[in-house]
Design a protein around this nucleic acid. Structure first.
Length: 637
RNA sequence: GGGGCGGUAGCUCAAUUGGUUAGAGUACCGGACUGUCGAUCCGGUGGUUGCGGGUUCGAGUCCCGUCCGCCUCGCCA
């Protein structure tokens, strides 16, 4: 075949007069009968080819006098169609029809003297054209190789590729050791559902794919890796979302002989390096916010600080009203400590200008929006101008009017505002009003564009998470981060001495965990780890694991921790999410070369698929699925 | 598992209250054309309206079921 001497993005006027060869795809063809233009595409750009019968005749390549030129090179060129793969040799010359300012190669063209069709295409289901309407995503995924040819997807792949390098550069330069950890791993059934892999050599036994290399990286600290990094694949068998896939990539990190502060400084340095290298943006020092402040002001542990719309706790004021909704909510758990999940509260959001924009229909919708989060509904009031002075109007106005001055002061009300209230136990009320805050911000048009599209980049650390939370179904304690997260240094004794039955005390223990939040999205999370046996034992006890069970599940880690374990701390960045931010997309599938659908199928390869019984027998597995029991068929081919 | 939206030529979409032979652009095929660059012009092929039932004189349209895709709640230590 004709091998290329140049790529399709590099030829300029300075090459005029040279004979060159190019390989690539037919991006478009413009057939003028005896004069044919082809835009040839490869990963590096577009170059115009011209098939000119005069030149071809001169080169003896077409039959002289054969206007239709159905023989020789012109005949072949006449049949070229979009996405054919060709190789050509020709002469670089200045374009005769004027330059095309849209192309870097737009001043020149190749007058082809030799054409080789390397791979004639079937008529493709769609063309990789960014200007055309995108085909539906199902089709894009089925023919992913065509979709990836689109310039926009090529940019994604290039950006992601550069991000790998930028990441490795920073951590390698800071003394991190890159280590690969196993993909075939031990099942540790806490947390996310795992993908299982049956084992042929040990009948009845299974590997699991790792949700993260958590335990290996801690063991690497015991093994004197000191600073570990890995760009690794993680697997979680849970339903995907727009920003979640069953397999995803994280930047996994762990450091020895550090406390929270040193780790946070190192990671902040990475964030600064990454944004500087990827986008030329200098990240300012990260703000820090406690989990409690985040929950109080934003109602969520990953606050979007690009808009204010703060949440106010007006429980004390609400208690002085005659409004039964408020008073009944405040009766809940009223003997429990402040911030306790079961203690009743009244939360409010002041929406500037909401009196006009938030119609009755919209605010009624807010109740339906909030109810699934476990609260009774959303109470509403408008604060409007009036000849006799501003006043409350509609909704629960009559209950608030007697305490108007206090509400105006507490919420900073201005005429034209709407106030939304949620009254319930702390946990559901906080969750519901946090979600409502984000919805209202969208409805009011308060959410700025992506950072990648000129909007702000609001990074912050969220710290001081609770160690434990109650599982809603079982009522048992579960680790908020994971069972190896240490209490914050000053909480250690409190924690070890806390009564196992003292729920309120356990709930109040603060961990040494930390998250990095960017524009309301969690991009990293980690913690200082436990290296103290008494603390670890207490955690297992609270999680309801007997020493025997803990040993069964985590003996290798516990053993490792008993043979000289350095204090250590770690974190993991969601790599796909970093790329999403850099590119300004909200669809994780856009930043993964071969993503899966909502039921975890790969539409291109049709994975997962049935396997023959023989293959199952080899791994000692028998399927209980009966294809005849229901009409369900494997996905259509 | 729950809720919502969607599925009509290869592709992107249209089709009035349920009413004649389901249309357009593009791609594809054929023809014309020597300076285009979203080439242009002329002609043509192409449909079990995701699938299976039902209602009706009549269903792309209404009803039930089902499959697939997306969004979302649950879930995601």
């Amino acid at each position: 075949m004709i091998l290329r001497t140049h790529n399709c993005g590099e030829l300029r006027e300075s090459h005029v007069g040279q004979t060159v060869s190019l390989n690539g795809w037919v991006n478009s063809y413009r057939d003028h009968g005896n004069l044919i233009f082809i835009d040839l595409r490869d990963r590096f750009g577009l170059t115009q080819l011209v098939f000119d019968p005069d030149d071809a005749n001169a080169a003896g390549l077409a039959v002289a006098g054969d206007k239709h030129a159905h023989t020789g090179m012109m005949g072949l060129a006449d049949k070229l169609r979009n996405e054919d793969v060709v190789a050509v040799t020709g002469l670089v010359r200045v374009r005769r029809g004027g330059e095309n300012p849209k192309l870097p190669t737009g001043k020149i063209e190749i007058v082809v003297t030799s054409l080789e069709v390397l791979n004639k295409t079937e008529n493709p289901p769609f063309l990789p054209d960014d200007n055309a309407a995108l085909p539906n995503e199902e089709l894009r995924l089925k023919y992913r190789y065509l979709d990836l040819r689109r310039p926009a997807m090529q940019r994604v792949l290039a950006t992601r590729s550069r991000a790998y390098k930028v990441t490795r550069d920073y951590f390698h330069n800071n003394g991190f050791l890159e280590v690969e950890t196993p993909i075939l791993y031990k099942s540790t059934p806490e947390g996310a559902r795992e993908f299982l892999v049956p084992c042929r050599n040990v009948p009845g036994n299974f590997y699991a794919l790792p949700q993260s290399p958590q335990l290996f990286k801690q063991i690497l600290m015991v093994a004197n890796a000191d600073r570990y990094m890995q760009i690794c694949r993680c697997f979680r068998d849970e339903d995907p979302r727009a920003d979640r896939q069953p397999e995803f990539t994280q930047i996994d990190l762990e450091m020895s002989f550090v406390r929270r502060e040193q780790l946070m400084q190192m990671m902040e340095g990475f964030v600064r390096h990454f944004w500087k290298e990827m986008l030329g943006y200098t990240v300012p020092p990260l703000q820090r916010m406690s989990y409690r402040d985040a929950m109080e002001k934003y109602g969520i542990d990953r606050p979007d600080t690009r808009y204010d719309l703060f949440i106010h706790d007006i429980s004390e004021l609400a208690a002085r009203t005659e409004f039964a909704v408020f008073r009944n909510a405040l009766e809940k758990g009223k003997d429990r400590p402040k911030f306790n999940s079961k203690r009743g509260v009244v939360k409010a959001i002041r929406v500037p200008g909401g009196a006009e924009k938030l119609t009755r229909k919209i605010t009624d919708g807010y109740s339906d929006f909030a109810k699934p989060f476990g609260v009774g509904g959303v109470a509403t009031v408008k604060y409007i101008a009036d000849p006799a002075g501003p006043k409350f109007d509609t909704g629960c106005a009559k209950f608030l009017e007697p305490l108007k001055a206090d509400f105006v002061a507490a919420l900073g009300l201005q005429p034209g505002d709407t106030v939304l209230f949620i009254a319930d136990a702390y946990a559901p009320a906080t969750k519901a009003i946090g979600e409502l805050r984000q919805k209202v911000a969208r409805d009011m048009g308060m959410v700025p564009p992506h950072g990648a599209q000129g909007g702000p980049w609001n990074f912050l650390w969220v710290v001081d998470f609770p160690m434990f939370e109650k599982n809603k179904e079982t009522g048992k304690w579960i680790a908020m981060h994971h069972p190896f997260t240490a209490p914050r240094d000053d909480q250690r004794d409190l924690f070890v001495n806390a009564g196992v039955e003292d729920d309120d005390a356990i709930e109040s223990i603060v961990s040494a965990g930390y998250d990095i939040v960017l524009n309301g999205s969690e991009i990293a999370g980690g913690s200082v780890r436990i290296h103290d046996k008494a603390v670890q034992a207490k955690v297992f006890q609270l999680l309801g694991l007997s020493p025997e069970q803990a040993k069964e599940k985590f003996s290798f880690l516990l053993e490792a921790l008993s043979y000289g374990a350095p204090p250590h701390a770690g974190i993991a960045f969601g790599f796909d999410r970093l790329i999403m931010h850099v590119l300004g997309t909200e669809n994780i599938r856009d930043v993964i070369a071969f993503p899966k659908t909502q039921i975890g199928q790969d539409l291109m390869t049709r994975a997962p698929s049935f396997v023959p019984d023989k293959q199952l027998a080899d791994v000692h597995v028998k399927s209980t699925f009966d294809p005849n029991a229901q009409a369900q068929q494997p996905a259509k081919a």
